[in-house]
Amino acid sequence: MLQFKSIGTPLVVLLAVLTMTGCEQAEKSAQQVLDQAAESAKQAIDQTNKAAQQALNDTLGTEPGKPPRQGADDKPTQDI
């Protein structure tokens, strides 16, 4: 019976250390997954913004960084 007690305590300590190490690895893996998801979301937002800007520019007939062009229908109006 003495042998089981002398083996039991180090075994419990070893299992606790292995469990803690496993938790740290799981935490690191989860953090990596979250970082990748955040980067993917950022890229999707950037691409959506770029597409929306391009659609707006196409609709208004402008190029990025240039003022809107004057059309034939753009006449100054005067109140009566």
Rank of each mutant, 00 (worst) to 15 (best):
L2C: 02
Q3C: 02
Q3H: 04
Q3G: 01
F4Q: 09
F4N: 04
K5L: 10
I7Y: 04
I7E: 09
I7N: 08
T9K: 05
P10T: 02
P10A: 03
P10C: 00
P10K: 01
L11G: 02
V12A: 11
V13I: 05
V13F: 02
L14Q: 13
V17K: 01
V17G: 02
T19L: 11
T19F: 10
T19E: 03
T19D: 02
T19P: 00
M20S: 12
M20Q: 04
T21A: 12
G22A: 00
C23I: 08
C23Q: 11
E24M: 09
E24W: 03
E24L: 06
E24F: 07
Q25T: 09
Q25N: 05
A26L: 10
A26N: 05
K28I: 13
K28E: 08
K28R: 13
K28M: 10
S29W: 06
S29L: 05
S29P: 01
Q31F: 07
Q32H: 11
V33L: 08
Q36F: 08
Q36S: 13
A37I: 07
A38K: 15
A38N: 14
A38Q: 13
A38G: 02
E39M: 11
E39S: 15
S40A: 14
A41W: 10
A41S: 14
A41Y: 03
A41R: 13
K42V: 05
K42L: 10
K42C: 04
Q43N: 13
Q43L: 13
Q43Y: 03
A44P: 00
A44E: 10
I45G: 03
D46C: 04
Q47N: 11
Q47Y: 04
N49H: 07
N49C: 08
K50F: 07
A51T: 10
A52L: 15
A52I: 13
Q53G: 05
Q53Y: 04
Q53E: 11
Q54P: 00
Q54T: 09
Q54W: 03
A55E: 14
N57L: 12
D58Y: 03
D58M: 11
T59Q: 11
T59W: 09
L60A: 12
L60K: 08
L60G: 02
G61C: 01
T62Q: 12
E63R: 14
E63K: 13
P64E: 01
P64A: 03
G65S: 09
P67V: 02
P68S: 09
R69Q: 15
R69Y: 04
Q70W: 08
D73V: 06
D73L: 03
D74L: 00
D74F: 00
T77N: 04
T77P: 00
T77W: 12
Q78V: 15
D79L: 15
I80D: 08
I80M: 07
